[in-house]
């Protein structure tokens, strides 16, 4: 932390922020000067400082989603200078102001997707991702006492790959970054996570059919293998999960129609 008296490295920034009163409002970019920003602040703390001032000035504070501010919940996320979550590969809450320099003009916009309607300012409704999970992102297991951890053996490589995929926090940056507005990386992360584990096998076919069906019903686009999603993903979900999803889906369709 910088000492309280040390403001030598503080930055004067100009923000251009998307302001939109409600879902039906047109919205526009609005400029704000934010002086004396400490490089040790997080991006959201910088917005907090601006919001305090706006509140004192009887202005409407900028609405943005946030919760844990530890990079693990997936609530926060805005497009900063055209890049989802900004210049570091992390969540917006974990982005430090030291990634910017004095005098910068920073453009802040909400995730843009036909399936993510804007609620207000930088807040979008990501219920479409929840509905994809509801369509098949689960397993059916008997409840009761927890089974022994080693009751079902899982190969180490599979366990590791399943865990990597399971780290998806559903923030939606993949959709915001995808030129096609596809949520395939998100969907493929869950398909990979559950499809690699023995507990996920009974519903493996119906899961991929239902989740891809829901993905498309929500209006998301198709995957062109451009890779912008994985490049901005705070959890580094691999593009190879999408190849896995495609194989699972084509296989599930084959076995459905072979019956």
């Amino acid at each position: 932390m910088t000492g309280s008296g040390d403001t030598s490295k503080d930055m004067d920034l100009k923000l251009r922020v998307w302001r939109q009163r409600g879902p039906k409002d047109d919205g526009a970019m609005v400029e704000y000067d934010v002086p004396a920003v400490s490089p040790d602040m997080s991006f959201l703390e910088m917005l907090d400082v601006l919001n305090e001032r706006l509140t004192l000035e009887d202005d409407d504070p900028i609405a943005f989603d946030h919760d844990c501010r530890e990079g693990i919940c997936g609530a926060c996320g805005v497009v900063i200078n055209g890049i989802a979550h900004g210049p570091e590969v992390t969540t917006t809450c974990q982005l430090h102001m030291r990634s910017f320099t004095d005098g910068d003009v920073i453009d802040i916009e909400p995730w843009r997707s036909g399936s993510f309607p804007v609620v207000k300012d930088l807040v979008v409704d990501r219920g479409s991702l929840d509905r994809i999970i509801q369509a098949g992102g689960y397993i059916s297991a008997p409840t009761g006492t927890a089974p022994d951890a080693h009751a079902v053996p899982v190969p180490k490589d599979d366990a590791d790959a399943a865990f990597d995929a399971a780290t998806c926090i559903g923030c939606g940056a993949c959709v915001a970054a995808c030129p096609n507005g596809s949520a395939m990386l998100f969907t493929a992360a869950k398909i990979t996570h559950l499809g690699l584990l023995p507990q996920g096998q009974p519903e493996r076919d119906s899961r991929v059919l239902d989740m891809v069906g829901q993905h498309d019903a929500e209006g998301f686009g198709g995957c062109s293998q451009i890779g912008e999603c994985t490049a901005v993903c705070p959890k580094g979900i691999s593009l190879s999960t999408i190849s896995r999803l495609n194989v699972d889906l084509l296989g599930a369709l084959r076995s459905t129609y072979a019956k």
Partner: peptide, 27 residues
């Protein structure tokens, strides 16, 4: 057609910023 609707483009543009148009790594 799907991608156009899904990426919420208005008049060809998606994000208002002129920065980051080339994305992060796309060819």
């Amino acid at each position: 057609k799907r991608a156009h609707v899904a990426s919420a483009r208005k008049g060809g543009t998606r994000y208002h910023t002129s920065k980051g148009q080339r994305g992060v790594q796309r060819s």
